[in-house]
Design a protein around this nucleic acid. Sequence first.
DNA 1: AGGCAATATGACACCGGTTACCAAATGTAA
DNA 2: TTACATTTGGTAACCGGTGTCATATTGCCT
Lengths: 350, 350
Amino acid sequence: MTTNGRTDGHGCMAKDAKPTINDVARLAGVSKKTVSRVINKSPLLNGATRSKVEAVIAEIGYVPNPQARALALRRNFLIGLIHDNPNAQMVLGVQEGILETIRDTEFALVVRPVDRHSPQLLDDIRHFIEQQRLFGVMLLPPISENDELADMCRKLGCTVVRMGSAALDKSEHLVASNDRQAVADAVFWLSELGHCRIGFIAGPQGFRSARERELGFADGMARAGLAIDPALMERGTYRFESGLAAGERLFAVDPPPTAIFSSNDEMAAGFLHRALDKGLKVPGQISIIGFDNTATAAHIWPPLTTVQWPIKAMARAAAHKLIDPLDAASQPSIFLSDLIRRSSADAPSA
Amino acid sequence: MTTNGRTDGHGCMAKDAKPTINDVARLAGVSKKTVSRVINKSPLLNGATRSKVEAVIAEIGYVPNPQARALALRRNFLIGLIHDNPNAQMVLGVQEGILETIRDTEFALVVRPVDRHSPQLLDDIRHFIEQQRLFGVMLLPPISENDELADMCRKLGCTVVRMGSAALDKSEHLVASNDRQAVADAVFWLSELGHCRIGFIAGPQGFRSARERELGFADGMARAGLAIDPALMERGTYRFESGLAAGERLFAVDPPPTAIFSSNDEMAAGFLHRALDKGLKVPGQISIIGFDNTATAAHIWPPLTTVQWPIKAMARAAAHKLIDPLDAASQPSIFLSDLIRRSSADAPSA
DNA sequence: AGGCAATATGACACCGGTTACCAAATGTAA
DNA sequence: TTACATTTGGTAACCGGTGTCATATTGCCT
């Protein structure tokens, strides 16, 4: 009863066409449905049949057509990465992390940079999700803080995973870093180094991450038993220029700070720039710690001590939550960041 | 003969289900085929019928299911971005550029970071293309220099567009920057500033971009009437550390160079770092020009003068070539880079 | 041996679009 | 008026998978 599939009366396979489930079925002498069961690892299947089909699949190099599957299943295997994030390093890290997780699945990653301030933001994203019939979306900060957006995505039927700060929400679909604790630890470390006048450059108001980092600063100072001097508290925009400006003002305070925690690296770079302009010794006269560990942090002079999100690990976790219903049912995942010690922070020289 | 579609005898639309082509056909009182003709802008169609169908489409917010279309048309509307590029800024810029072009089309962008050195590189990418049935792929440098890869993609039936240096190939599916000319111009500008001892840090051997920039350096020196001193020619790996090492050697030369052109910013940052370590004044004693305009370039001290690819414009052009057959038939697109003048390069002080 | 699950496989309609082909309606020439 | 070309719309099959349900086979118990 063994049939030589390639020469059977039904005609041979077309030269260049990709093999389909029908080819497999014919060659294996079973029905389409059985092949489908093999592909989907259905448990109620005779072992012998399964291996026969698997052999044929391997032989002719059959790959199921994801479009056809998507059509039949009424859902597809695209996950969208929606972001409005100025930190290229981070966005790329997230992309790589997601990819590591979905590498051997049928999922693919489609990206969508957006403009947070666009008036059609919601409409654009809705159209994107509906048109591509996305399986799920991943939201990166700062746009992950937009609750309205997250609700809309859920309403559109896709699972939503947000990356952000721990306090973002209690949803199980959250992957967060504990910025507050990381900053507190870093500030406490500065105090251990002997710093008493520690300044802070906050991020822009309205950003959850900025708020978390502020709270962390307060925590760290409290743990160190240090009072917060309002004159050493600055607020910036997360941009280089605002770090420059904060430096201008902070160096005018008397007595000046001996250490500064900046809520991100870009502002830290600006602050550092100003410090060097003024002829200060770093870290001797002023220690600096940043946040994010961007590529710049390692390449400025002196190299910047900074707090680093475990971006890839977080992205892997987020991707798991997205594609694995079991994982999604679990708790929010909270990651703790590392302090990358380089040479911009050390004991005060005086 | 006007019918109130929503209450016709055939039953009303399900509550939450997305409208399908059948719904449109029923409500408009025409056949599926007619609706399909409207969607695909078939020319042989009565104007009245067309507008009636279009009205219904607008009313119920119908969006064709891309999976179904992909299945029927045997091709889909995904374009893949394959890259192995360490410059996050550039990769993200490309993503944004592509997106600007495909924003109002049915195309979507799926990304695939890869490891150039992986032994299964080809297999991985083949699997990716076959599984997702990609419409086309875009290759970024340095992986765009892999001819074998490009051939494979073409053989798999997708159009290939490569971004790279001008000399890459003569294919019409090329979007390139004229690195050679840009470097030559920058070097000539250094000579105009009064520099005579100009050094060069080359990129790693085997990179087309590195080769182009070397040729550009030679062109620029020739145009300036300057002889190339072999002692001032270094070769690096495009990494920060190799810039550091090149600096170590170059400052040992007597007389030392007064200006350096580095084939990328990361090495320039390393070189700059070493210069400052040695207590040199930048740009007074040593001028530095980089290439790429990474985020770091603007944030190091002093800010780095560098050559910038018009990345977004190139990406837009590349995306056009990919999705528009007419555009693809045209010539390769060559872009000229800009010199971003910051403060790391100026006239020698002595 | 008969009855009855439990297991393994197949037939067939369907997902939402497309094309090939055919029928009807309209217009035009002999 | 008939014959024939030209536009338009409808029908059915198909793209490559999936679900539902029926059927064939097997093993087990009484």
